[in-house]
Write a protein that binds this DNA or RNA. Structure first.
Length: 605
RNA sequence: GGCCCCGUGGUGUAGCGGCCUAACACGCCACCCUGUCAAGGUGGAGACCGGCGGUUCGAAUCCGCUCGGGGUCGCCA
């Protein structure tokens, strides 16, 4: 950085090479050590810490006397000489620890109240308090690193995309509401009472229109908004790398993004192991093997289908589940045979919270193939018989000392339950290495899924996704079997992004809308602009969107998206710092033509 | 909407029916101390235990409701 007026150097940047120079620093008092005659101040700025020595004696400038009143987080400007410390006085724990500043003048730029919590990485502070005082929390080194990591990601992406002839295009934040998909955040219109803008869930339609507009290669680091319940990896507003390309097929998009992810990770986290090329799975395959479309692939723990082994057994729970269209599948916990009954019951309790009616356990203290009844501990040994139990153990590839857990239900429930158990087992056995970032692709998603009532079809990805060419013939006969030209990127158990090849022909798009239960009139009202655009020479195109908050989260090795967002919201979507959302004055509502159905509810702590 | 966990001085915890007019560490305040770097020494201030209502002779400790926070299932085209 160019020498400034208030400071010539950063505190954290001072090194032996600066010895002999007179410098002026400005920063915060990280710590003060008053020894009577001499006082040490660790002065902190964004770059780090440096020790300043102040000796306010008769020979010194009178300004140094102010050090007596200096407290933590005071903002100081200090001029002095950079000197090398004596060998005994060097501090190897500090990047600038070989040198220190001998202060000649001191200026208090601002005083500070004692902060509500310590500015330190190794302290565990209530998160609401951190958010209420986020401007103090951001001074912690971990937060500084996270913010800088975000910047690094953004910068890498902009360079990468620019080098490949992509143009960054901004799209509107106030758009038309889309009843499809997630709940919209709405903005009332003053000029059109009763009408609302929506904040975009993603720039999906606009980027497709950019393709029709001939842009060919678009990207944007775009803010997206979805009014749904929050999670550790979900915020109501989040940032996506949004991109769209014309004249491409799946392979173009996947290889472009794979190259980007590899380069991004290696340039920002050289120490991380990134297995390449990224493995690819079809949706059907990955669901069968892991029960999830975003499994953590740093460990195995694959699932096994045991339905055929128990179909004819006397155990009614299994038989019943299969007869009503379900299956019996299993996961193995290596070494789980030594768990007490109580510990095994914990798995059952966990499974029940995820919708399972129960969970069947089998503990093997011998290889399943030649286990006797004495080598098997299971509440259903008698119901299934030793032979079946042996067969289950063999099917699951269980070893002596392992625990097999079986869930019986429809696929949806079994997948949720076994995915949950798989994560829990991996967590207990500490199977996920923090040194690996294991990316993977998932392709061939189903095009449609039934809504909750099992009635009409919904688009699994979104209604502009093209069907696999080979499956187009099923449009009229068997929509459930149609696969979409959609793909996800996953990493370490998170969905990082998804995309698809889009429909670019009006006839096919209209046909899909019909299948989704959107009639001609509704199509015109809600999607007329898209259909019309497709009539004016829409090129084949496809794209992708990457959840950048999650990417930064993985690169920082944290498990919470709020740790990499400067001003995140709480689980109930509030901001303790600014008080959002807030009530508004009644004349503000009057202008918008809005009357509240009920008086606002004010909450106290 | 469901389930689980948490809520004690500024911060983090302990206490889990009477010994609590609440303990410990860090921080804070004052004084001492010229080389420390999580400085040190001496002394001191600071919470009525998220809120409300019950149970009990008696509650921070038990119960109910409620508010706030976190995790998760549903939800997230």
């Amino acid at each position: 950085m160019r020498d400034g007026v208030l400071k010539t150097h950063n505190c954290g940047d001072l090194r032996a090479q600066h010895v002999g120079q007179e410098v002026t620093l400005a920063g915060w008092v990280h710590r003060r050590r008053d020894h009577g005659g001499v006082t040490f101040i660790d002065l902190r700025d964004r770059a780090g810490l440096v020790q300043v020595v102040l000796r306010p004696d008769a020979a010194a400038d009178a300004s140094l006397e102010a050090v007596a009143g200096v407290r933590s987080e005071y903002v100081l400007r200090i001029t002095g000489a950079v000197v090398e410390r004596s060998d005994e006085a060097k501090n190897p724990n500090l990047a600038s620890g070989d040198v220190e500043l001998q202060a000649t003048t001191l200026e208090v730029l601002n005083e500070a109240k004692t902060p509500p919590f310590a500015i330190s990485d190794d302290i565990d502070v209530d998160e609401t308090l951190r958010l209420e005082y986020r401007y103090i929390d951001l001074r912690r080194p971990a937060m500084v690193r996270a913010i800088e990591m975000r910047h690094g990601v953004n910068q890498y992406i902009r360079n990468f995309m620019t080098e490949r002839a992509f143009s960054e295009v901004e799209t509107p934040i106030m758009v038309a509401a889309t009843p499809e998909g997630a709940r919209d955040y709405l903005v009332p219109s003053r000029l059109h009472h009763g009408s609302f803008y929506a904040l975009p869930q993603s720039p999906q339609q606009l980027k497709q229109l950019l393709m029709v507009g001939g842009l060919e290669r678009y990207f944007q680091i775009a803010r997206c908004f979805r009014d749904e319940d929050l999670r550790a990896d979900r915020q109501p507003e989040f940032t996506q790398l949004d991109l769209e390309v014309s004249f491409v097929e799946e392979e173009d998009i996947l290889s472009l993004l794979e190259e980007m992810f590899i380069g991004l990770t290696r340039s920002l986290r050289m120490d991380l192991n990134v297995p390449t090329p990224f493995p690819r799975f079809t949706y059907a395959d990955i669901m069968e093997r892991f029960g999830s479309d975003k499994p953590d692939l740093r460990y195995g723990l694959e699932l096994s289908d045991c339905s055929d082994l128990v179909r004819d057994s006397e155990f009614g729970v299994f038989r019943g589940a299969i007869e009503s269209g379900g299956r019996v599948r299993a996961i193995v916990m290596p070494g789980g045979a030594e768990l007490s009954r109580k510990r095994v019951e914990e798995f059952t309790a966990l499974a029940k919270t995820m919708g399972a009616k129960g969970l069947v356990s089998i503990q093997f203290t011998a290889p399943p193939a030649d286990a006797t009844e004495d080598d098997v501990r299971s509440p259903v040994l008698r119901h299934l018989g030793l032979e079946t139990v042996q067969a289950i153990g063999t099917r699951c590839d269980a070893k002596s000392g392992d625990l097999v857990l079986l869930a019986a239900d429809v696929d949806g429930v079994v997948n949720t339950v076994l995915d949950g158990l798989r994560r829990e087992i991996a967590s207990r056995l500490d199977l996920a290495s923090p040194d690996i970032l294991q990316y993977a692709w998932v392709t061939d998603f189903p095009m449609f899924e039934r809504d909750e009532q099992g009635g009409r079809w919904n688009a699994q990805h979104h209604p502009f996704t093209a069907p696999l060419r080979a499956d187009e013939s099923l449009l009229d006969s068997d929509p459930a079997r149609i696969r979409a030209r959609a793909y996800d990127c996953i990493a370490n158990g998170y969905e990082l992004g998804s995309g698809s090849i889009r429909i670019h022909q009006r006839a096919l798009q209209s046909r899909i809308f019909h299948l989704l239960g959107i009639g001609a009139e509704e199509q015109e009202a809600r999607f007329g602009h898209m259909l019309r655009a497709f009539e004016y020479g829409a090129p084949p195109h496809g794209g992708f969107a990457v959840g950048l908050d999650r990417v930064v989260m993985l690169l920082m090795g944290v498990e919470n998206i709020r740790e990499v967002i400067a001003f995140p919201k709480t689980q109930s979507a509030t901001d303790p710092l600014t008080g959002a959302p807030s009530t508004v004055a009644s004349d503000q509502l009057d202008e918008l033509g809005i009357r509240l159905a009920a008086p606002p509810v004010l909450h106290d702590m």
